[in-house]
């Protein structure tokens, strides 16, 4: 597991900075929720706002409960964007950056299989993203407890698991594309797909033509408000999990077969 640990060591400062960022962001929002407990007037605004507005900014069921507040302020857009930026940039740098720098040859010249190098690099991506989710879960649980706001920690964990899988969908796609083509293509296509997927899923209720393709959008299976209020939806989680395995297989197959360092 030495390659895995060295990959983490190389990024230790960055990991710490991202974790602090997530913790601070969660803390700030929960403090905001606590300072303005009577958010019912927002609910009235939401009720009067055009549906397309709520579709674009998130699932604004209610802002008066912590679940509705977190769903609208964190899970609908901010968390997915932050995680996608981190996940895609990490996925496209783990191998491609080393390849561009020439250091990948140091590993390939050792008696270590390509599969082992690939899997340990991939594991470091999965682990770093999991650390972020853990930091978010711990900080939300901690800050809600400090401000005496009741939240179901298990349901929160399920919402974060869904976010984690959603992030891995785009990250593994970026990982696969950067191995099949190059880093730039990996970032561009997975980033574009993230944006398209988000809009397709959220606008499909209003644009009938999008309704036909919304099942192909990862965001359709990321029902954060339901998860925060009702807990796990295994079918959705499974749908989010399958593409990760497919992209993983594609990425590994590409890395096994291709020329390195061209």
């Amino acid at each position: 597991m030495r390659i895995f640990w060295e990959s983490l060591r190389e990024r230790q400062r960055s990991i710490l900075a991202w974790m602090i960022g997530f913790i601070a962001f969660c803390g700030l929002l929960i403090a905001f929720f606590n300072e303005f407990p009577d958010l019912s007037f927002y609910d009235e605004i939401i009720a009067q706002a055009p549906e397309i507005f709520s579709a674009l900014v998130g699932e604004l069921t209610t802002l008066t409960t912590i679940e509705g507040f977190l769903s609208a302020e964190l899970f609908s857009l901010m968390f997915p964007v932050m995680m996608a930026v981190l996940g895609i940039s990490l996925a496209t740098s783990l191998i491609a950056k080393e390849e561009n720098a020439g250091t990948l040859e140091l590993l390939l010249a050792r008696p270590v299989s390509r599969a082992k190098i690939f899997n340990q690099k991939m594991l470091s991506l999965v682990f770093q993203l999991a650390l972020m989710m853990l930091a978010c879960w711990a900080s939300i649980v901690l800050f809600t407890s400090i401000y005496n706001v009741e939240i179901n920690a298990v349901n929160l964990a399920w919402a974060l698991v869904a976010l984690y899988l959603l992030t891995l969908d785009f990250s593994m796609l970026a990982f696969a594309l950067s191995n099949i083509f190059n880093r730039g293509i990996g970032m561009a296509i997975s980033g574009a797909l993230f944006v398209v997927s988000y809009f397709v899923s959220n606008l499909s209720a209003f644009i009938s033509s999008l309704d036909k393709i919304k099942d192909f959008s990862f965001f359709t299976y990321y029902r954060h408000y339901d998860l925060l209020t009702n807990g796990a939806n295994y079918a959705d989680l499974l749908v989010l999990l399958v593409p990760i395995l497919v992209f993983y297989w594609l990425a590994q197959a590409a890395f096994e077969r291709r020329d390195i360092g061209l």
């Binding site: 060295e6 720098a101 020439g102 250091t103 040859e105 140091l106 010249a109």
Partner: peptide, 11 residues
């Protein structure tokens, strides 16, 4: 095998 490139890239 031991391998050394002339323009070696190290961490």
């Amino acid at each position: 095998i031991g391998y050394l490139a002339g323009d070696i890239a190290l961490y």
